[in-house]
Nucleic acid binder design. Structure first.
Lengths: 194, 194, 194, 194
DNA sequence: GATGAATGAGCATTCATTCAT
DNA sequence: CATGAATGAATGCTCATTCAT
């Protein structure tokens, strides 16, 4: 019984992600999540308050996981090239390991908008981005990284990986993104190499 | 009267795009489009048959415009570098000139899926992509363009621009993508430069 | 067909009043009204927008009817006593002739509160009351009617009738209020007789 | 501990009355009462069994208080006029001293209907009314009080006060009913004065 | 081609109540 | 006596779509 208690919330989240993957967020009904999670409607509302909040929780959870993994790879990097590739690797690894969560995040940023978590997450993301820029700053200063407008670094470094991830996760491309780990990281580096 | 006829359909499309931009596709109701277009519900169904069809028409229309522009730029290119940059420029120009359409296309690929137009568009897109690959083929053969798996070219060349376009169109970045026309084209080229 | 069109709205109102009488406003569900009126849910919402609005429409309609009748009786009165009794008679006649509407109005003033019609009705009622006070004014000035604080006249004149109407309409008293027409009018007059 | 016990139940009743006053009985949820009373849901159900029972308890409590006060005033009366005015005074005093309870009782008679306490209370009220009629009986017999149908006495004597109390308690009249103690008592007497 | 009243399946959400701890 | 997570029936309302005029 003690174990079931703690899992109930997670069971709902798991069921929700599966439904979102299968039918899309908008097309997923509370009833679908209920059936899949074996929780009662009341229980779902007891834990999350409303449908959007389930999606928002999932969204934040996913980003936090990715951020953590990104951080751990970036810490080990000692050169500009290693840093840039760490960003690319972290993204590719995470997408390949968590395709459902990645697909959910990539295709449902809008679910966050209407949500109370939105601002909190926005702030967290901003801070995260600032930290990464700070990490690269010395290299830019030393000319070991190309100097471009700050708001462009993310798109240059992760653009190709984001794009291919979308292709793969939506079924328009067949090959697991992991197979292109090196090519994509190399491309990332080439865009900001001095 | 002949003019009114043609306009009525376009008025509906314009109103629909405005609604989609403002509220998102799923949240837009037939009633909203009706109010904005000053058409009657019956008229909308006469012209389009159902709601999805309006979105699909808009979607195809937008892609066709972009494709046409892309084609016209690519025709003039005489080197691999010019070709790659033509792809980037075409995308950036189109996004900057048609932000609403671009936003609609970027954020609503899924609306197409359920639609009859889906297969036709898929085929058109595939053919378009094949043509572009064919254009690049000689350069790859001559070693004037890096050889990578075919399904990667698109992501490498347009990934960064796609990514920044999303940032800008969703309000997460402030600067008009047009300002980064050169940087993004340069980045595109760097990813496939031999 | 032309006849059905106009009646649909009234059919819904009639069904609603019957349901409200039978189960009370809060306990009446949209489904009950739908079943009784043979209209579709959509039709009900097309005409009224929401459940409260049905009740509010009924409420205003009832008051307007009573006001009209009151006015017509008051017009004929030529003495203070006749005027006072006209008010009492108008109320008693209307309650006896429209017990369901009267019950609905007496027991559901609160449904108005949350409604857009509230302010409009409030204003209308205020104006109505002002007119009646104006009618009595000369008699008060001439000492043919007792002078009491303005906000008390209504309670003095109609209090007893209101009270008995509640008793009768809720089943706590058996005798039709019409039977006490004269006694109640006499009582009304006695409270303000100089 | 004995004190806490008794208080807990009263705390719930107090919180409930406050909620009923603020939102109305139907709109008040168990959750609202729980939050305001700082009791747990389980505790509320332990003490009262269900939501209606809370309202019913409050209702009976209020009537008992009023009855007691009425009795104490009526005991001292020695003439018909004093008796009639005692009824009026008792009501006015109680309303002015307990506006929330009075409002609750005036506007929620229907909550009692569905309740087990209903019959008991009905009987108690009937007995109370019978006693009062008995008190007046000798005066009627002696012609010191007007003879009217029995079921009318209550409305004649308290109608005006009831009516004004409703006006005041619902915010439609500004002046504390206490200010009209004498006028209303005088009016009550005038309706049954021989 | 145009109109808009009518339709009704489908959905998110609420809330009184239960009961294991 | 107290607690609060869990339950699920019930409800108001939305909205794409139809069709008679």
């Amino acid at each position: 019984m003690t174990t079931t208690k703690k899992n109930r919330k997670q069971e709902i989240l798991d069921a929700a992600l599966a439904c979102f993957t299968e039918h899309g967020v908008e097309a997923t009904t509370i009833e679908m999540i209920r059936e899949r999670s074996q929780a009662s409607v009341g229980s779902m509302y007891h834990h999350f308050g409303n449908k959007e909040s389930i999606a928002a929780t999932l969204y934040v959870e996913a980003l936090v996981e990715h951020h953590a993994w990104q951080q751990s790879l970036l810490e080990k990097a000692r050169t500009a090239e290693d840093g840039v590739k760490a960003i690319a690797f972290a993204y590719i690894d995470w997408v390949s390991a968590n395709p459902d969560k990645a697909r959910f995040v990539l295709y449902n940023r809008s679910v966050l908008a209407k949500t109370p978590q939105a601002d909190e997450l926005k702030e967290r993301t901003r801070k995260q981005y600032t930290e990464i820029l700070a990490w690269f700053q010395p290299y830019v200063a030393r000319g070991e990284l190309k100097k471009v407008p700050q708001e462009l670094y993310a798109s240059l470094i992760t653009g190709a990986a984001h794009d291919y991830a979308r292709m793969w996760l939506s079924g328009r491309a067949r090959t697991d993104i992991k197979a292109y780990r090196e090519v994509l990281a190399e491309a990332a580096w080439s865009t900001v190499k001095p």
